[in-house]
């Protein structure tokens, strides 16, 4: 038994549950009834499929940006020296993850309904109802809510590791707060930011559940199109082809991200 053999269980696991399904997806996307064909891919060149893909990328982009804007200040506060009860706040960020995201999303669907708890409260205070659900707003909200912790944690991790002496040195050398942030803190936290972006962008791009529950089925994202091929239309070939296209887009995104050189540094994901 050498140390390497400890990795065998995982390799077998990965072989059966990652490699084999991946090969099947490639196969299904190129072969219809045993014949090689590109038909599944050419079928995708239809303006409403392309539009769904573009919309998905847009939604993922917006929700990632919102998560980043909300998470960075929070992570900074948490990593700050003067925070006394930061473990409680950190716990509050992680706590929702103890519960299944499907249940939480269902809960939001009930709270945000036109006739739901929040609108009833608004009405009781004499305010008009707001249509939270059944559209783009609800979907973006659901993405930000569900994936926010994945942005906070890596950024917090990266910030907490920064040697405080570097920041003090920056002040000593005459930099003000903004310059210190721009020249010292931000670059050093880059690996955390990149990890956070990847961790939020990817699930946002592929979700079908949030669109379904909070978008009232009116928002068609690429995840919904794939889901539909497998569960309703039964067109595994086309579903596989769309999955392949989506994977390629994710790969390109990852490639761009790793170009930034942040992935192999401390706090990075890979």
């Amino acid at each position: 038994m050498n140390r390497k053999s400890l990795a065998y269980p995982y390799m077998i696991w990965a072989g059966i549950f990652i490699i084999v399904p991946l090969v099947l997806i490639v196969y299904f996307s190129f072969f219809v009834d045993g014949q090689f064909t590109l038909a599944n891919y050419t079928k995708f060149i239809e303006d409403y499929y392309i539009a769904a893909m573009v919309r998905s990328i847009g939604f993922a982009f917006v929700s990632t940006a919102i998560c980043l804007l909300l998470a960075y200040p929070l992570a900074m506060i948490l990593a700050g020296k003067e925070m006394s009860n930061k473990s409680i706040i950190l716990l509050l960020v992680i706590l929702p993850m103890w519960m299944n995201s499907l249940l939480r999303t269902y809960a939001w669907a009930n709270l945000l309904e036109n006739n739901g708890v929040i609108n009833n409260l608004l009405n009781a205070m004499g305010l008009p109802s707001v249509k939270f659900l059944y559209g783009n707003g609800g979907v973006i909200f659901g993405m930000v809510y569900n994936f926010f912790p994945f942005m906070v944690l890596p950024i917090y991790n990266a910030l907490a590791k920064i040697d405080h002496k570097l920041i003090e040195a920056s002040y000593d050398l005459g930099a003000n707060k903004w310059t210190t942030f721009k020249k010292v803190t931000l670059p050093l936290s880059m690996p955390g930011i990149v990890t956070g972006i990847i961790m939020v962008f990817m699930p946002s791009l592929t979700t079908f559940l949030i669109t379904r529950l909070l978008g009232g089925g009116k928002v068609m994202l690429i995840g919904n199109i794939i889901e539909e091929q497998f569960t309703r239309t039964g067109d595994m070939g086309f579903g596989s082809a769309v999955s392949m296209i989506l994977m390629i887009i994710v790969l390109i995104t990852l490639g761009i991200m790793s170009r930034k050189g942040a992935l192999d540094e401390e706090g990075g994901l890979f």
């Binding site: 239809e46 409403y48 499929y49 539009a51 769904a52 089925g217 009116k218 068609m220 199109i225 539909e228 091929q229 309703r232 239309t233 067109d235």
Partner: peptide, 10 residues
């Protein structure tokens, strides 16, 4: 049917 429906919803 499936492409009609995708088009309607999109």
């Amino acid at each position: 049917y499936s492409s009609i429906w995708t088009e309607v919803k999109a």
